[in-house]
Simulated scan of single mutants.
Amino acid sequence: MHIAIGAPGNGEILKDEIRSFLVDDDRVDAVLDLSEPEITYPAVSFLAAQKVSAGEVDRAVLICGTGVGTAISANKVRGVRAATAHDLVTVRGAVENYDAQILCMGQNVIAAPYARMLIDLWLDLRHDPTGSYGPKVDEIAAFESHD
C-alpha cells in the first residue's frame, strides 16, 4: 500500500509519529510525506487528495490541530472522501461503510499511542461495495459527478 501523509506545523509532532509507524509497517510499501515548512492545512490536504484521486497513492493520513480543517479541504477534491476519526467505531465506519481514502486526525485531540492503534486498524480495513452502504457511496459519487 502506498500512503501519503501530511500536516501543517500544528500537526507535525503527531504526523512524525504516524509516519514512523507507517514506515516500519510491512503492510506499507511507501510513505510520501507531503509536509513542508510553512505549508497550510488546505494546501497539504489538496496535495494529498490529488495524489489519491490520481491513483498515485492508495490512501492518505492528514493531521492538523483538530482534523476537521484537513477533512474539509481534502473533500473539495472530486472523487475523494476524507473523514475525521479519533475512535475505533468512526475509523472502521469511515473505510468499511463510506470508502474514505483519507483519514484525518487532530494533534490537539488524540494522543500518539492511541492514534497509532487506530492507524494499525485502518491499514487492514476495506470497503465492501456490495454491502448495504455501497449504494449510498454510489449515490454520493453520482451527485458529485453532476456538480
Score class of each variant (00 low, 15 high):
D99H: 10
P42M: 09
D87C: 13
P42E: 03
F21V: 12
E56V: 03
R116S: 06
G65C: 11
I72M: 13
E144F: 00
L88T: 15
I63K: 05
H2D: 15
R19V: 13
A100C: 10
G69T: 07
A94Y: 05
A30M: 07
N108M: 11
V44N: 04
L32G: 01
A54W: 02
T66E: 08
C104D: 00
A82L: 09
L121D: 11
G93T: 07
D25T: 08
H2Y: 09
G9D: 12
R126A: 08
E56C: 01
S53F: 03
V77K: 03
T130M: 07
P113G: 00
A54F: 07
D147E: 13
R19L: 15
E139K: 11
A94C: 10
V28W: 00
A142F: 06
N97T: 03
V91G: 12
V23Y: 07
G9N: 08
G134D: 10
I72Q: 01
V28D: 00
R78A: 14
C104S: 11
A82R: 06
R78Y: 13
T70P: 00
N10C: 11
K76S: 06
A30D: 09
D128F: 06
R27L: 15
A74W: 04
A60R: 04
P135I: 10
W122F: 15
A7M: 03
G69P: 02
E17F: 10
I5E: 03
D24E: 13
C64A: 04
V28P: 00
Y114V: 15
A54T: 06
L62N: 03
A30W: 09
A82V: 08
